[in-house]
Amino acid sequence: MPEENGGNGGKKTGLLDKIQGDAKALKQVVQDKAKADLQTYKEPEKTQVFRSIFRVSHDDTPRSRALSVLTNVFFHLHPAKVNRDAVRYSFTWGMGGITFYLFIVLTFTGVMLMFYYHPTKVQAYRDILYLHHDVPFGQLLRNMHRWAAHMMIMTVWLHTLRVFLSGSYKKPREFNWCVGVILMVLTLLLSFTGYLLPDDQLGFWAVTVGTNMARATPLLGHEGPGGPQLGMTPFNDVRFALLGGSIVDANALLRAYIWHCIAIPLIASIFMGVHFWRVRKDGGISGPAPVMLESEIKEEKGPRPVIMKPSGIR
């Protein structure tokens, strides 16, 4: 039965030849596959991994441009399209976005600093010295955190100025202006609670001066109008609640630390979420809008209708 030998026309082949043949075939397959793979590496956006992450093709069509914003969790705060003049620096001054960016920078550098910092009277000041002198780039890290905090206050104030001067707080954005005011106050409080943390003379006396004002809170402070009459003493008034004591000491340090690193950032994040969401829901940023003339003011009768347009639709 010569056919039993595998269709070689009855010619007997050895095991070695068989392996050689297989190897040759395999080499051809590998070469072909490698060539095909190399081809896909030249176009990584066609790989399965890439497509599983970015579901939209990155070409120059309006659809892809819109989807690249809408399908990205970090970009989807934006509408797909914006007012053609709204991208001008002259209108927005970029201050709101920069403020948010600085918040991210501060969160990042802040978390890094937390790795080196103990909120205790024994160690806090030494940790700062340690940061300055021993931690690689520790001084730079602390500098960046502090100056970013100062810069954030500057940009928040300039953002407020821009929003006022462009009349952006007017209907339908009244509520978002209020959220913005709260965010501005939270920014100041964030910076102020961080001031005490190095536990040096500068922070100690600044916080002493600042919280001494709380003594004079009407009704709730022991030196404020009506306070003593309500039984307020240095040991039960609002200042005591802020400091966790009657003087700026270990408890005040811990409280400042918790407010600074956890509580206020959390609260501010929630308000930020509302702020950004409302920018979209109130119809995107306010302008540059077409001017309205004095003769076009309508007499108002009765309550105004509530307008809730999905963003992007005008």
């Binding site: 819109a66 690249s68 797909a80 399209k81 991208v87």
Partner: peptide, 10 residues
């Protein structure tokens, strides 16, 4: 009247 966010705003 409007431009794409990507790339003009981003």
């Amino acid at each position: 009247r409007e431009v794409h966010t990507w790339p003009y705003l981003m």
